[in-house]
Each structure stands twice: as structure tokens, then as C-alpha cells.
Design a protein around this nucleic acid. Structure first.
Length: 470
RNA sequence: GGGGCCGUAGGGUAGUUUGGUCUAUCCUCGUGGCUUCGGGAGCCAUGGACCUGAGUUCAAAUCUCAGCGGCCCCA
């Protein structure tokens, strides 16, 4: 079912994103795209999931400005070094040049932390756990790609926390990782949790944990990151609190984010040659009803459709009453990934049944007209479970363990997936591995396993993951 | 960072090598109508395009340069 998608993934992706009405890619600026109403609904339901998870763990949603003055943006040396080549600058107000250049946020640490300076006074103010969901801008010079590499990241969920100790910050990192695991599990998107190497961590962080998923072409996509900032930013932004003994101390901070890429992963993970398959939880339409009008029985069918829709009203149901052939409707809703289709025609009415077709397996069955609601809910639940199980199965098949660099290089070159191997911990060995395999050093995976470093042959306690990334 | 290919209706294309009946092809699509409707309906009528700018020329979709945009490969 996934042949074409696997054969030319890039083509499939661009095609489906437009045909399923997720994004209109025709906006006349490179790297900027338009959310269609249907795609925007998927985005909304996905955001509902993350909001709920954050809110119930004590995070509060806030909103900070888009523009950041140059003097704040430039405070943290590592941070600016990491971002300066990709910042859009606002230099004019009308025709007048501005005294202070304003950056369009590429991320919001430097917009938020000057305010933390003002907000944080005492240990009683801590911890602070806030988040915002905003757009951020990055001047990408490489090929941009819808939802994956954007100049305007339209959906950037960033959480920022402040703590009185490193232990508390570490605990926050654990919580954040768990929240993201729950989030991706809800969406049925498989992932590895990986500690990025020091040379590839977030600019200004002590360390970075990342969530990577794997696409059908074998390349990995980073879909979430969690950073422990230690006191790095607190020191440059002078964020101090008075502890219970009356001493002034620098605060400890973390931040963690997800972006549009989550939507890309969601669509790609469950898609196939027929189009998308959106998990019921985040599907804009969970169930589409297709009336089958036949030989002057249109009124009778329509009456029954109204009744059926009413019975299913606590689901997101849509009746497709367009004046086109049923077959044409089937194709449309399959592309858009509606998880369940119900066909209702004269024959069904006569037999006291409805015809249902589930999108994940394309299986067609008839179910009794009585207790339709329970049956439909049961099928939707089954679709949810099946999608997740299937996704993890395919994901695991793309993770290889390599005992030699040549072996690893071959697997990656053929686009089969990612490779795990031993690493002693030296940066020099990391570079050797990266060069020899001709792929990215993604980082240390969280499952421990003893082995041999493929860079130098010494024993290693860590397994790292290597692959080509987006 | 380096290199290559490309830009024609809403989408996909023919035409560009060799400038000239191109008044621009075909499929899809839009609109109006009639018949249809259990896997992309049929017929009739009708609508819609040469990326932008400059240049060469009697003449530019076609040649040159620049810009913008897209795709691919290598580091």
C-alpha cells in the first residue's frame, strides 16, 4: 500500500500536502505557505492535545512580542552565533531608519528572559513554567519544504521554565520528555529520544535532548527538543532570586519546543498511496457520511442520513451531499484521511444496516443500523490503536545496529533508515564516524548498551544513532 | 559552500534545439444546462496561460543578461 510513497517520497509529500488541502504552497514568497481551512483544523486539534498536556502539568500559556531589540538579542554569545545568519531584521519604521534594529524572533529566549529578570525576585516565585504557541522566522537559504524547513515556522510551541536548583531543572527536563512522549503517543508518531552531542546542542544550552522520527526515505526528522540551559542565560540576562537564607543566586532554566514538523510527521507516518490517514483524535472529520441516491429514492435516503447524523452528533461528522458521483467522493475523503466513511443507500435502509469503510485498512463491512454510535466509536478506537501499532512496527524496522563503518554507510546510503553503533565519547571519534559513514551524528540514544567505539576501537558504554536528517 | 536542470491556464503538459500561420497543443479543471448516482459519469455550450524586468531583432513562449521562484546532485 505504501509503494509509491516509498518509491518517490518527496513527490508524494508535495503532492499530498496540496491535494489533501493541508497547505497551499503557491504563496509568492519562498518558504512561506498558506494553511487551508482543513489543514488548519488538523493543526488546531494537534495543538489541543499539547495544550491539555502542558496545562495539566502546571504550565501557563502566555504571549510575548514578535520583535526583539538588537541589544537583547545579542546578549548571549553562543546563542547569537547560532542564529545570526538566519535572522530577519526590521530596520525601518515607514521610511525612517530605526535607532534600534528589531529582530523577528527566530526563537524567543531573548524576548522572554528580559521579562524573567523583572518577574523573578524570590525563591517563592519559582518555579515559573510558561509556554507560548507562536510563529517564528528563520532566513533559510537551503531548499525550503512545507512544514519541514520553513522561513516562517507558523506553529512554534516553546515552553520556558525557571528553577532554583539544577536538580529542579533536571526534574523539569524529565517531565518535559514525558509530556512529549505522551504527546507523540497520542498522535501515534514513533520516536527515539536522543541526547545531541555537544557540538550540535542548542546554542546556549548545557545539553539538548531531541525526539527524532524516521521518514519512509530513511531520513530522520527532529520533531521535538528539550534543553537544559543551566545558568547560562540567567547569567547573561541577570536573572537572580533571593533564596530562603537571603542570598542572591542565579536561576536555572530549561526550554523545550515543538513545531510544524509534528504535523509533517503525523501526516507522513500514517499516510499511504491513497493519501492521508488522520488519527481520529485529531481528524477534522472523524466520520463522513455519503448518501447513495438511487432511482427516485433521494428523499428517503436524505431523511435517513439526517437521522444518522443526529445520532452521531458527538463525533465530528460531515455529510457529503455534493452533486457528484459517490466514487468521486470516496477518493476525495481518502486523500484527506478521514478515518471512517459511512455509505447509506436504499439497500442499507431496506436491510437496516449501514456500510462502513475504515481508512487504515480500507476494509468494507456492514454494521447494524441499531447501536450505530457504539459500533462507530469502537471502530474509531480500533483505528487509533492500529495506526499506532503499525507506525511503531515500521519505525523499528528502520533502526539497524552496525558492527562496522562500511556496513553502516551502506545501510544509510540505501535509504533504509538509521544506524546504532558504539561510541567512546570523544569528539574526534564522532567526527571520524560522521565522515566515514557520510551521515549526521544524531546523538546518544537512551537505551544503554556496552560495545566498541567504531571510531577508535575502545570499549564504549553508549549507543549512538547516525543517519541522514532533514 | 559548489555545481546542474527548470519556470507555458487552478493543476499536469506540447511547442523552445533552427525566432515568423502560436490567432499556443492535449488532459484535467471552472461556469451554465440536461440525463445520472453502491469506486474518479456522459453529452452540449462556454471560460482560462507564455514568471518579472531590461536587451537583441522588422519580428521573442523561443536568443542574451539580471531578478524572483522551483527541483536535483556534491561538499
Amino acid at each position: 500500500m505504501r509503494e509509491k510513497m516509498n518509491r518517490n517520497f518527496s513527490e508524494w509529500y508535495n503532492d499530498i500536502i496540496e491535494k489533501a488541502e493541508i497547505l497551499d504552497i503557491r504563496y509568492p514568497v519562498k518558504g512561506l505557505y498558506v494553511w487551508f481551512p482543513y489543514g488548519f483544523k488538523v493543526r488546531k486539534y494537534v495543538l489541543d492535545v499539547i495544550r491539555e498536556l502542558l496545562d495539566k502539568t502546571g504550565h501557563q500559556e502566555a504571549l510575548f512580542p514578535l520583535l526583539i531589540p538588537e541589544h537583547e538579542f545579542a546578549k548571549e554569545a553562543q546563542h547569537i552565533k547560532g542564529f545570526e545568519d538566519e535572522v530577519f531584521w526590521v530596520t525601518h519604521g515607514g521610511r525612517e531608519p530605526l535607532n534600534v534594529k528589531l529582530a523577528l524572533r527566530p526563537t524567543s529566549e531573548t524576548a522572554i528572559y528580559p521579562m524573567f529578570l523583572v518577574w523573578v525576585r524570590s525563591h517563592a516565585d519559582l518555579p515559573i513554567k510558561i509556554y507560548q504557541i507562536v510563529n517564528v522566522f528563520r532566513y533559510e537559504t537551503k531548499h525550503t519544504r512545507p512544514l519541514i524547513r520553513l522561513r516562517e515556522i507558523t506553529t512554534f510551541k516553546e515552553a520556558h521554565t525557571v528553577h532554583e536548583s539544577m536538580e529542579s531543572a533536571e526534574a523539569q527536563i524529565e517531565e518535559a520528555i514525558q509530556i512529549y512522549k505522551n504527546f507523540f503517543d497520542e498522535l501515534g508518531v514513533p520516536y527515539s529520544v536522543i541526547r545531541r552531542p555537544d557540538w550540535d546542542k542548542f546554542p546556549g544550552a548545557v545539553y539538548t535532548m531531541a525526539f527524532d522520527t524516521i521518514f519512509p526515505d530513511g531520513r530522520t526528522l527532529q520533531i521535538g527538543t528539550v534543553h537544559n540551559l543551566g545558568q547560562n542565560f540567567a547569567k547573561t540576562f541577570n536573572i537572580k532570586f533571593e533564596d530562603s537564607e537571603g542570598n542572591q543566586q542565579y536561576a536555572y532554566q530549561t526550554c523545550y519546543g515543538i513545531s510544524d514538523r509534528v504535523i509533517a510527521a503525523l501526516l507522513v507516518t500514517h499516510g499511504d498511496d491513497h493519501g492521508l490517514c488522520i488519527p481520529p483524535k485529531v481528524a477534522p472529520i472523524q466520520c463522513v457520511i455519503i448518501p447513495i441516491w438511487y432511482k427516485n429514492k433521494k428523499d428517503e435516503v436524505d431523511r435517513e442520513v439526517v437521522k444518522l447524523k443526529e445520532e452521531l452528533k458527538d463525533l465530528r461528522v460531515h455529510v457529503d451531499d455534493r452533486d457528484i458521483r459517490p466514487g468521486s467522493k470516496y477518493f476525495d475523503w481518502e486523500i484527506k484521511g478521514v478515518p471512517l466513511r459511512i455509505e447509506l443507500g436504499p439497500k442499507d435502509i431496506e436491510e437496516g444496516k449501514v456500510t462502513v469503510v475504515r481508512r487504515d485498512t480500507m476494509e468494507r463491512t456492514t454494521i447494524s443500523r441499531e447501536n450505530v454510535k457504539e459500533s462507530v466509536k469502537r471502530i474509531l478506537a480500533s483505528i487509533t490503536d492500529n495506526l499506532k501499532a503499525r507506525a511503531w512496527d515500521e519505525f523499528k524496522k528502520k533502526i539497524y545496529e552496525a558492527t562496522s563503518l562500511e556496513n553502516a554507510r551502506k545501510i544509510i546510503k540505501e535509504g533504509r533508515g538509521v544506524v546504532r553503533l558504539g561510541w567512546c565519547g570523544d569528539e574526534a571519534c564522532g567526527k571520524i564516524i560522521e565522515d566515514e559513514i557520510d551521515a549526521d551524528f544524531l546523538g546518544i540514544v537512551d537505551e544503554k548498551k556496552d560495545g566498541v567505539c567504531l571510531g577508535c576501537g575502545r570499549t564504549s558504554r553508549n549507543m549512538i544513532q547516525v543517519g541522514r536528517s532533514y
